[in-house]
Design a protein around this nucleic acid. Structure first.
Lengths: 219, 219
DNA sequence: TAAAATAACGAACGTTCGTGCTTTTTTGCA
DNA sequence: TGCAAAAAAGCACGAACGTTCGTTATTTTA
């Protein structure tokens, strides 16, 4: 590996750390350079602009997410085990030592929800990919008989994701030490509600997500 | 009302707007003054420091939250209706025209999870109050027979909150037009899972939250 | 209506921001 | 070992940041 790419990588690592703690907006080239013992201009030369640096940080984190969270889950057998693995990997990722300030993608997502531009576009595509992966895993779960056919897979993805957000909030902001257990409990309930009508444990119940058109009073 | 308090109020309103879109970190006195047609120093004099301004914005939003979300829910009968009202009010609040960039409290929460100080302390106390309110409403629901006695109310608060976060994400970042419906569905499922063992509709099921000590492999 | 208090102003402070230049140092290859 | 290329540093810029100052204009109180 070149010297250039090498320091570029170390810059990205330090930048990820900083962005994790202070957000993308809180990431300044000056402080980043000081942390690394580099000059501002020397660091700057590696990326050409602040926006390019932010994009590079985001891309790096995103690729790492695929590597650590998504990819290993596909070694699990299709269906419920894969979904469970996706969930556990995500929690692990969220409290990884790699991100002392929490998942930078989630932080960036909430930071950029009203700031259009290529960075938001990229994040959006990645988030949709993530939700698609969950929904697709749910669809496979149905086809292998781990879930009821009436289950709404988009709804499952929504709730899967919601539990993750709730966990992140409880863990990082509230510092609730039982956050992970609560997230696990919520996730188990979610899967349980999706179980086929004749599972080996638990009584039958009405599967969720079948009520596409329902009575909604307002809106 | 004094002239001073009057402009102070208008400053707070404009600042809330700005913070809603760009986050607390993105709120600058210069741009705020320009928006209002004031001088920087004139605006500055009302608060004495940037931190004080941020705190004032947060307090104002928090008080408004109590007024618009929490308070009206207590006009509903105790139990399930109150919980439902809390939830709907929260969703309404989240997409209120008052906050073009989404709930500033939620944004601040995710922004400050690693920045200790009085502002974080205040937000933490408010968030805990919010979660306590939900848990307490669940406890009352049990006592009036709307929920099973085995229900873990802290767990309910966690999931209630998680659905709200998931909604905020889907609505504001993904721009998913069915976000609200998904959130409603998730919430209805949550309540359904908490129903007493002999409800008038739906088959019996194992109530949640009773598994305090369980097998957890790692961690 | 006169006096006291407050609100708002404009200019300037020192600092940090991102970003260009130019120069020096380091690296990798013939 | 010498030399071109790449990397890093140095310096400077214009703008924006939060903040302080002294002064003027406007309210409020007496």
């Amino acid at each position: 590996m070149n010297k250039g790419n090498q320091t570029r990588a170390s810059i990205l690592a330090a930048a990820t750390n900083l962005a994790s703690k202070d957000g993308l907006a809180g990431l300044s080239i000056g402080s980043l350079a000081k942390d690394l013992g580099l000059s501002k201009s020397g660091l700057f030369g590696h990326f050409g602009s602040k926006d390019a640096l932010l994009m590079a940080v985001t891309e790096a984190a995103s690729e790492r997410f695929v590597e650590l969270v998504m990819r290993p889950a596909f070694k699990e057998p299709a269906g419920r085990p894969r979904l469970e693995r996706l969930f556990e990997n995500w929690l692990d990722w969220s409290e990884s030592r790699e991100f002392p300030g929490g998942c930078p993608i989630m932080a960036a997502t909430l930071e950029l929800d009203d700031q259009p531009g290529p960075l938001r576009d990229y994040l959006l595509s990645q988030q949709q990919r993530w939700l698609d992966t969950i929904a697709q895993a749910a669809r496979i779960s149905i086809s292998v008989g781990h879930m009821d056919e009436a289950v709404d897979c988009e709804q499952v993805a929504f709730e899967f994701n919601a539990i993750g957000f709730g966990y992140h909030f409880s863990q990082r902001f509230l510092r609730d030490s039982s956050a992970r257990q609560k997230a696990r409990t919520a996730f188990r309930t979610l899967l349980q509600n999706c179980a086929p009508t004749s599972p080996k444990d638990g009584p039958p119940e009405s599967p969720r997500g079948a009520e596409a058109t329902e009575e909604t009073n307002d809106e």
